[in-house]
Simulated assay, not measured.
Amino acid sequence: MTDPAELSERERRAWHGFLTMQEDLRRHLNRQLLQDSGLSLPDYAVLSTLAMQPDESLRVFELRERLRWEKSRLTHQISRMISRGLLERRTCAEDTRGSHVALTPQGRESISKATPLYLGDVRRTFLDAVSPRQLDALAALSEAVLENIRERESAGD
């Protein structure tokens, strides 16, 4: 039996392969997106999340929850994007202590131009490299791990 503090060769190969693929894929997509559109992956994540909203805005805490980011990371990202004219802050009518973050016309134009370029690169780099069976397995794997995390967190682990 394998020591729980050690990984078998199979487990090590899968785990390290997953981590390496994730980092290399993120780095490649970020580099290509910057080259194609001038947006970073974090820029794209914020802009695309806001663009999917009916009024192209969210309260900061809602955006943080959707992106699954730490508060300080999102705060810094929003500040950088505001200074570049991609986002604006709006006061929150429901809660004067809170604020909304919204796309500016420049932010809307940037995400509109970047999306087909980004999705094309995702297709060429990731989706075209795997079979439909592998894609289904990845979806099932992701869902199983996310469910395990939710269960562990709700149990207080």
Rank of each mutant, 00 (worst) to 15 (best):
T96E: 13
M81F: 08
S37G: 02
T115A: 09
D55V: 15
L119N: 08
L58T: 03
C92S: 14
A93T: 10
L103A: 00
L117Q: 06
P116W: 10
F61P: 00
R31F: 10
L63C: 06
W15M: 14
T104K: 10
G98F: 11
P116H: 04
N30T: 07
R73W: 06
A51G: 08
D43G: 02
Q32M: 12
M52G: 13
E70C: 04
S131E: 05
S48A: 11
R89D: 01
E65K: 15
C92A: 13
D136V: 15
H16M: 14
T49V: 08
S83A: 15
T104N: 05
E94P: 03
V101A: 05
G98E: 12
Y118N: 02
G107N: 02
G38I: 05
L127I: 12
D121L: 10
A93P: 08
L19P: 01
Q53W: 11
F61D: 04
P54Y: 14
L138P: 01
P116T: 00
F18P: 00
Q35K: 13
G17D: 01
Q35P: 01
Y118L: 13
H16N: 10
Q77E: 11
R66L: 15
L58W: 08
D43N: 07
L33Y: 09
G85W: 04
H100P: 01
R31L: 11
E62C: 02
L41C: 04
A45Y: 08
L63P: 03
S112L: 10
T125W: 14
C92V: 05
Q106T: 09
L41K: 00
P42A: 04
L50S: 03
S72I: 12
Y44Q: 00
S99M: 08
M81N: 02
P105K: 04
H100C: 05
L29K: 07
A14F: 15
L25R: 08
D95K: 09
D136P: 00
L138Q: 05
P105C: 04
L39A: 02
S40N: 02
D24F: 13
D43Q: 02
Q134P: 01
R64E: 09
P105G: 02
Q35F: 10
A93S: 07
